[in-house]
Amino acid sequence: MLWPELERYDFGRSLWRELDTLQRDMNRLFSSYGERTEADFPSVNLWAGENDAVLTAELPGINSEDIDISVHDNSLTLNGSRKAEELKEGETYHRQERNSGQFSRIVRLPFKVDESKVNANYKNGVLEITLPRAEEDKPRKIAVKAV
Protein backbone atom coordinates (compact mmCIF):
# COMPACT_ATOMS: atom_id res chain seq x y z
CA MET A 1 0.00 0.00 0.00
CA LEU A 2 1.19 3.46 -0.75
CA TRP A 3 1.67 5.54 2.37
CA PRO A 4 2.54 9.10 1.61
CA GLU A 5 3.32 11.45 4.43
CA LEU A 6 0.09 12.99 5.69
CA GLU A 7 -0.97 14.31 2.39
CA ARG A 8 -1.08 17.97 1.98
CA TYR A 9 -2.20 18.52 -1.55
CA ASP A 10 -5.62 17.96 -2.85
CA PHE A 11 -5.65 18.27 -6.59
CA GLY A 12 -9.29 19.17 -6.65
CA ARG A 13 -8.42 22.66 -5.47
CA SER A 14 -7.63 25.48 -7.76
CA LEU A 15 -4.11 26.30 -8.70
CA TRP A 16 -4.24 29.64 -6.94
CA ARG A 17 -5.17 28.16 -3.66
CA GLU A 18 -2.47 25.62 -4.19
CA LEU A 19 0.11 28.35 -4.64
CA ASP A 20 -1.21 30.13 -1.63
CA THR A 21 -0.77 27.05 0.51
CA LEU A 22 2.69 26.56 -0.88
CA GLN A 23 3.65 30.10 -0.04
CA ARG A 24 2.35 29.75 3.49
CA ASP A 25 4.23 26.53 3.94
CA MET A 26 7.42 28.13 2.66
CA ASN A 27 7.02 31.08 4.98
CA ARG A 28 6.47 28.77 7.87
CA LEU A 29 9.45 26.71 6.88
CA PHE A 30 11.81 29.65 6.88
CA SER A 31 10.47 31.65 9.76
CA SER A 32 10.01 28.99 12.36
CA TYR A 33 11.44 25.75 11.16
CA GLY A 34 10.75 22.94 13.56
CA GLU A 35 8.53 25.05 15.73
CA ARG A 36 4.98 24.09 16.24
CA THR A 37 2.05 26.19 17.21
CA GLU A 38 -1.09 25.87 19.26
CA ALA A 39 -2.91 24.46 16.27
CA ASP A 40 -0.58 21.49 16.45
CA PHE A 41 -1.60 20.48 19.94
CA PRO A 42 -1.73 17.65 20.75
CA SER A 43 1.22 16.09 18.97
CA VAL A 44 0.28 12.90 17.21
CA ASN A 45 1.97 9.77 15.98
CA LEU A 46 0.43 7.72 13.22
CA TRP A 47 1.01 4.02 12.88
CA ALA A 48 0.09 2.60 9.51
CA GLY A 49 -1.12 -0.93 8.98
CA GLU A 50 -2.52 -2.75 6.01
CA ASN A 51 -6.18 -2.07 6.67
CA ASP A 52 -6.12 0.53 9.37
CA ALA A 53 -4.09 3.18 11.10
CA VAL A 54 -3.52 3.84 14.78
CA LEU A 55 -3.23 7.42 15.90
CA THR A 56 -1.73 8.15 19.29
CA ALA A 57 -1.56 11.41 21.21
CA GLU A 58 -0.24 12.36 24.61
CA LEU A 59 -2.98 14.11 26.58
CA PRO A 60 -2.13 13.83 30.26
CA GLY A 61 -4.59 14.86 32.93
CA ILE A 62 -7.77 14.92 30.91
CA ASN A 63 -10.86 12.94 31.74
CA SER A 64 -11.84 10.64 28.92
CA GLU A 65 -15.29 12.26 28.76
CA ASP A 66 -13.64 15.61 28.06
CA ILE A 67 -12.10 14.35 24.83
CA ASP A 68 -14.26 14.69 21.78
CA ILE A 69 -13.30 12.77 18.66
CA SER A 70 -15.03 13.06 15.33
CA VAL A 71 -14.20 11.46 12.03
CA HIS A 72 -15.44 12.42 8.62
CA ASP A 73 -14.12 10.86 5.43
CA ASN A 74 -10.38 11.26 5.79
CA SER A 75 -10.21 13.88 8.48
CA LEU A 76 -10.10 13.37 12.19
CA THR A 77 -10.90 16.12 14.67
CA LEU A 78 -9.77 16.07 18.28
CA ASN A 79 -11.39 18.55 20.64
CA GLY A 80 -11.07 18.87 24.34
CA SER A 81 -9.98 20.90 27.25
CA ARG A 82 -7.91 20.59 30.36
CA LYS A 83 -9.02 22.35 33.48
CA ALA A 84 -6.57 24.52 35.32
CA GLU A 85 -5.92 23.87 38.97
CA GLU A 86 -8.04 26.19 41.05
CA LEU A 87 -6.08 27.97 43.71
CA LYS A 88 -7.56 28.68 47.09
CA GLU A 89 -6.72 31.63 49.16
CA GLY A 90 -3.16 31.62 50.42
CA GLU A 91 -1.96 29.25 47.70
CA THR A 92 0.67 30.36 45.26
CA TYR A 93 2.31 28.97 42.15
CA HIS A 94 6.04 28.41 42.30
CA ARG A 95 6.03 27.06 38.79
CA GLN A 96 3.36 26.77 36.19
CA GLU A 97 4.59 24.93 33.14
CA ARG A 98 1.58 22.79 32.39
CA ASN A 99 -0.94 24.21 30.01
CA SER A 100 -4.64 24.29 30.35
CA GLY A 101 -7.51 25.34 28.21
CA GLN A 102 -9.16 24.28 25.00
CA PHE A 103 -7.54 22.48 22.14
CA SER A 104 -8.63 21.50 18.69
CA ARG A 105 -6.68 19.60 16.14
CA ILE A 106 -7.55 18.31 12.71
CA VAL A 107 -5.51 15.51 11.22
CA ARG A 108 -5.85 14.49 7.61
CA LEU A 109 -5.41 10.82 6.97
CA PRO A 110 -4.22 9.25 3.75
CA PHE A 111 -7.44 7.29 3.32
CA LYS A 112 -11.14 7.35 3.97
CA VAL A 113 -12.10 6.01 7.37
CA ASP A 114 -14.99 3.70 8.19
CA GLU A 115 -16.57 6.00 10.74
CA SER A 116 -18.67 3.28 12.35
CA LYS A 117 -15.66 1.17 13.29
CA VAL A 118 -13.44 3.80 14.87
CA ASN A 119 -12.28 2.77 18.30
CA ALA A 120 -10.63 5.00 20.88
CA ASN A 121 -9.20 4.37 24.28
CA TYR A 122 -7.42 6.52 26.81
CA LYS A 123 -4.96 5.10 29.29
CA ASN A 124 -2.33 6.75 31.47
CA GLY A 125 -2.75 9.99 29.61
CA VAL A 126 -2.23 8.49 26.18
CA LEU A 127 -5.04 8.51 23.65
CA GLU A 128 -5.11 5.75 21.08
CA ILE A 129 -7.51 5.78 18.16
CA THR A 130 -7.85 2.91 15.72
CA LEU A 131 -9.02 4.05 12.34
CA PRO A 132 -10.06 1.28 9.94
CA ARG A 133 -9.91 2.05 6.27
CA ALA A 134 -13.31 2.24 4.62
CA GLU A 135 -14.17 -0.81 2.55
CA GLU A 136 -14.97 1.22 -0.56
CA ASP A 137 -11.65 2.99 -0.27
CA LYS A 138 -9.54 -0.14 -0.25
CA PRO A 139 -7.64 -0.88 -3.42
CA ARG A 140 -9.21 -3.47 -5.69
CA LYS A 141 -7.17 -6.38 -6.82
CA ILE A 142 -7.54 -7.01 -10.49
CA ALA A 143 -6.88 -10.45 -11.70
CA VAL A 144 -5.08 -10.76 -14.98
CA LYS A 145 -6.46 -13.55 -17.09
CA ALA A 146 -4.44 -15.42 -19.59
CA VAL A 147 -6.14 -15.37 -22.90
Binding site: E5, V44, N45, L46, W47, A53
Partner: peptide, 13 residues
Amino acid sequence: KAYEGHSLAYSEY
Protein backbone atom coordinates in the same frame (compact mmCIF):
# COMPACT_ATOMS: atom_id res chain seq x y z
CA LYS B 1 4.90 0.57 22.39
CA ALA B 2 4.87 -0.89 18.94
CA TYR B 3 1.74 -1.92 17.10
CA GLU B 4 2.01 -5.28 15.45
CA GLY B 5 1.69 -5.18 11.70
CA HIS B 6 1.98 -1.40 11.79
CA SER B 7 4.85 0.90 11.09
CA LEU B 8 5.30 4.43 12.33
CA ALA B 9 4.33 6.42 9.26
CA TYR B 10 4.25 9.88 10.75
CA SER B 11 5.63 11.09 14.05
CA GLU B 12 5.44 14.35 15.95
CA TYR B 13 6.49 13.19 19.37
